[in-house]
C-alpha cells in the first residue's frame, strides 16, 4: 500500500484549474504531518504545459496520455483511474467539485467500493491518516464532518477557495508515464458537440469575485452596468432565479438552491431580495456586499457590508471608483 495523497488534475486548454493547486497545497500540508507523498493524476493529450505547472506541487505525476481522454467522459476515465488506484492503493483521492468531479467521483467510488464525500468546503487530517471532510447539508443550514469506512482511498471533491494556494510548494515531481486502460467496448457515450458559453469569463463557481443582480435590475439590457462592474474587477456575473425565469439571463449563472453554490472571496448582490433559496447558494462566500433600495430586505441579514440605495446610481459610480483606485496601484 502506497498510502499517498492523490489529486486528479483537471485542466482546460492546457491550464490546470485553480482548485487543483489548492488541493495539492492542502496535500503538501498534510504530508508534512504524516510523511505521505503527494501525487497528481494527469489525463489527456498535449500535457506539457500542465505537467510543468504541476511539477512544483507534487512528488509524483502519473501521466496518461491518450486522445480518448479529451473531451472527458466517465467511460474513458473510470477504467484507467480505477486500475491505477487498485495497483497503487493511495490513501486519499481528491478532485474539484466541478462538472467532471461530480460526474466521475460518485461512480468511481461505487466501483472501488469506497467512501466519497461530495462538494466539500474543508478537509482535515488526523494523526492516523484518517481524513475528515466538511460539507454543507440543506444548502448550508448545517455542516457535517464526514468520516470514512476502512476502505481506501478516502475520496472527496472540494469547492473552490477552500484552501490557499501555497506560494512556495517546493516539490519537484517525478513524471511517471502510465499506459491508459481503455477498452473500446466500455466507451459507450460519445461527445458529439460542444457549445462554448459566450464571453471569456470564468464560471461563477470558479471565479474569485462574483457580482450579481436580481429582479431589481428591471430589464435585461440593464445588465450592461453589472457587466462593466465585473470587467473592472475581473469578476463573473451571477443572478437569481427570478431573472432566469424571465429569460433575461442564462441558467448557468443562477446562484442558489436550484442553481449553483458559489464560494467566491467577494460576492456583491444588487437588487436581490435575499430569498432563502438564493442565499443558500452563497453561504461559503468570504465577503458579501448587498445593495438594495429596501432597507429591510432579507439580503442584508446575509451580508457583511450593505448599502440601502439605488443600484442604478451606485453600480456605475462603484465601477468608476474601482477603476480609479485599482489603476493607481
Amino acid at each position: 500500500m502506497s498510502n499517498d495523497i492523490w489529486v486528479l488534475a483537471e485542466h482546460q486548454e492546457g491550464k490546470v484549474k485553480k482548485i487543483i493547486f489548492e488541493l495539492l497545497s492542502a496535500g503538501i500540508d498534510f504530508s508534512k504531518k504524516t510523511g505521505q507523498e503527494v501525487a497528481v493524476l494527469l489525463l489527456g493529450s498535449g500535457l506539457e504545459e500542465a505537467t510543468k505547472s504541476l511539477t512544483p506541487f507534487a512528488d509524483k505525476i502519473y501521466l496518461m496520455d491518450a486522445p480518448s481522454f479529451t473531451p472527458y467522459t466517465s467511460d474513458a476515465y473510470l477504467a484507467s483511474i480505477a486500475s491505477l488506484i487498485k495497483e497503487h492503493q493511495p490513501s486519499i483521492f481528491l478532485g474539484g467539485a466541478t462538472s467532471t468531479g461530480k460526474d466521475l467521483f460518485p461512480r468511481l467510488a461505487m466501483h472501488l467500493q469506497t467512501g466519497y464525500a461530495p462538494d466539500c468546503t474543508g478537509l482535515s487530517m488526523g494523526e492516523d491518516g484518517k481524513l475528515i471532510a466538511r460539507r454543507p447539508l440543506f444548502g448550508g443550514k448545517a455542516f457535517a464532518e464526514m468520516a470514512f469506512s476502512e476502505a481506501r482511498p478516502q475520496m472527496a471533491t472540494v469547492r473552490n477557495n477552500a484552501f490557499l494556494v501555497n506560494e512556495n510548494p517546493d516539490r519537484s515531481a517525478k513524471v511517471i508515464s502510465v499506459p491508459p486502460h481503455i477498452d473500446p467496448s466500455l466507451l459507450k457515450k460519445k461527445v458529439t458537440g460542444f457549445e462554448k458559453a459566450v464571453g471569456a469569463k470564468l464560471d461563477i463557481t470558479e471565479a474569485d469575485i462574483v457580482v450579481a443582480a436580481g429582479r431589481g435590475i428591471k430589464a435585461p439590457e440593464n445588465f450592461k452596468i453589472i457587466e462593466d462592474l465585473a470587467d473592472a474587477l475581473n469578476a463573473s456575473v451571477g443572478t437569481t432565479r427570478a431573472t432566469v425565469d424571465e429569460g433575461w439571463r442564462d441558467l448557468k449563472d443562477q446562484i442558489g438552491k436550484s442553481g449553483k453554490n458559489i464560494s467566491a472571496k467577494l460576492y456583491m448582490a444588487f437588487g436581490i431580495s435575499g430569498a432563502i433559496h438564493h442565499v443558500l447558494g452563497i453561504g461559503t462566500c468570504k465577503t458579501v456586499v448587498a445593495v438594495d433600495t429596501d432597507p429591510n430586505a432579507l439580503v442584508f441579514n446575509y451580508a457583511d457590508y450593505g448599502i440601502a440605495g439605488d443600484l442604478f446610481q451606485i453600480v456605475p459610480a462603484l465601477t468608476e471608483e474601482l477603476k480609479r483606485v485599482l489603476s493607481s496601484e
Binding site: 467512501g115 466519497y116 464532518e145 464526514m146 469506512s149 476502505a151 451580508a303 457583511d304 450593505g306
Partner: peptide
C-alpha cells in the same frame, strides 16, 4: 447496506458578523 461514509459530527454554519450598513 453498511455505509461507506458517516457523519461524525454536525456543525452549525459559520456565523457572519452582523452587517455593517454604510
Amino acid at each position: 447496506v453498511s455505509p461507506y461514509i458517516k457523519i461524525e459530527k454536525y456543525v452549525p454554519p459559520p456565523k457572519r458578523p452582523p452587517v455593517k450598513m454604510i
